[in-house]
Amino acid sequence: MIINNLKLIREKKKISQSELAALLEVSRQTINGIEKNKYNPSLQLALKIAYYLNTPLEDIFQWQ
């Protein structure tokens, strides 16, 4: 199972779901689904999230 800290990191950086979704060219619902662990992002999307949040990938997504 993958645990993610996306919501915590996104809120710490004061970025809304809508703003992050626009940067990543995905829907706000996609961001919401990832934050709620409804599904895991593709590797490409995970890397883009880490890039736009300027945060190491392993700080956002962790195996458990």
Rank of each mutant, 00 (worst) to 15 (best):
K7M: 10
K14C: 08
P56K: 08
L20S: 01
I3H: 09
I60V: 10
R28C: 09
A50Y: 02
N37Q: 08
Q17C: 06
K12G: 13
L20A: 02
I34S: 01
K14P: 04
E11L: 10
D59L: 11
A46E: 02
I60M: 07
I60T: 03
Y52T: 11
I15D: 00
L6D: 00
E35K: 00
A21T: 03
A50H: 03
L6I: 04
S42F: 03
T55E: 11
R10Q: 01
A22E: 14
K14E: 11
T30F: 13
K38R: 14
V26Q: 04
K14F: 11
E35L: 02
K14Y: 08
Q44H: 13
Q17Y: 04
T55N: 04
L43C: 10
A22T: 14
I31V: 13
I34R: 00
N40Y: 07
N4I: 02
Y51I: 10
Q29V: 14
N40P: 10
N4Y: 02
N32G: 07
L57W: 05
E35I: 02
L23I: 14
I2S: 10
K36P: 01
P56G: 05
S42G: 12
L43K: 14
A21M: 03
I2D: 05
Y39M: 10
M1N: 05
N4H: 03
N32S: 10
R28D: 15
I3V: 14
A22I: 12
G33Y: 13
P56E: 08
A50W: 02
Y51A: 13
N5E: 05
V26P: 00
E19W: 05
T55C: 08
K7H: 06
T30E: 09
A46I: 04
L47W: 09
S27E: 13
F61Y: 03
L20Y: 01
S27P: 13
L57A: 04
N4G: 03
Q64Y: 09
L45T: 06
L20P: 00
S42P: 15
K12Q: 15
N5V: 03
K14H: 14
L45K: 02
N37A: 07
N37C: 08
R28E: 15
L53Y: 01
S18N: 10
Q29G: 15
R10F: 02
G33A: 12
I49V: 06
E25N: 14
E19K: 10
L45H: 04
L6H: 02
Q17T: 11
N40L: 07
S27K: 09
L45C: 06
L24I: 13
K38V: 14
S18D: 12
L23C: 09
S42K: 07
S16I: 04
Y51H: 09
K36S: 14
I60G: 01
L23D: 11
Q17S: 06
I2M: 08
A50K: 03
T55P: 01
K36W: 08
V26I: 11
Q62H: 08
L23V: 14
V26M: 06
Q44S: 11
K38M: 15
E25F: 10
R10G: 01
A21H: 02
Q64P: 13
I49A: 05
N37T: 05
Q17D: 05
N37M: 06
N54F: 05
L57M: 12
Q29N: 15
I15N: 02
L45S: 03
L57T: 04
G33C: 11
K14Q: 12
Y51K: 11
A46G: 09
A50P: 01
I49Q: 00
K48V: 04
T55V: 09
N5H: 08
L20V: 03
Q64M: 07
A22P: 02
L53G: 00
F61H: 01
I9K: 04
V26K: 03
N5P: 01
Y51S: 11
I15R: 04
P56S: 06
L24Y: 00
L23A: 15
A22L: 11
Y39F: 15
A22F: 12
A21L: 01
N5F: 05
M1V: 09
Q17I: 13
Y39Q: 11
Q44M: 09
P41C: 06
K36F: 11
R10K: 01
L23H: 13
A21I: 02
L6C: 05
T30I: 13
L53I: 04
Y51Q: 15
Y52L: 11
W63H: 05
I15Q: 05
L20C: 03
Y52H: 12
Y52I: 15
A22G: 12
Y52G: 06
N32K: 13
K38D: 14
L6T: 03
P41S: 03
I31L: 13
E19F: 07
Q17L: 12
L24Q: 00
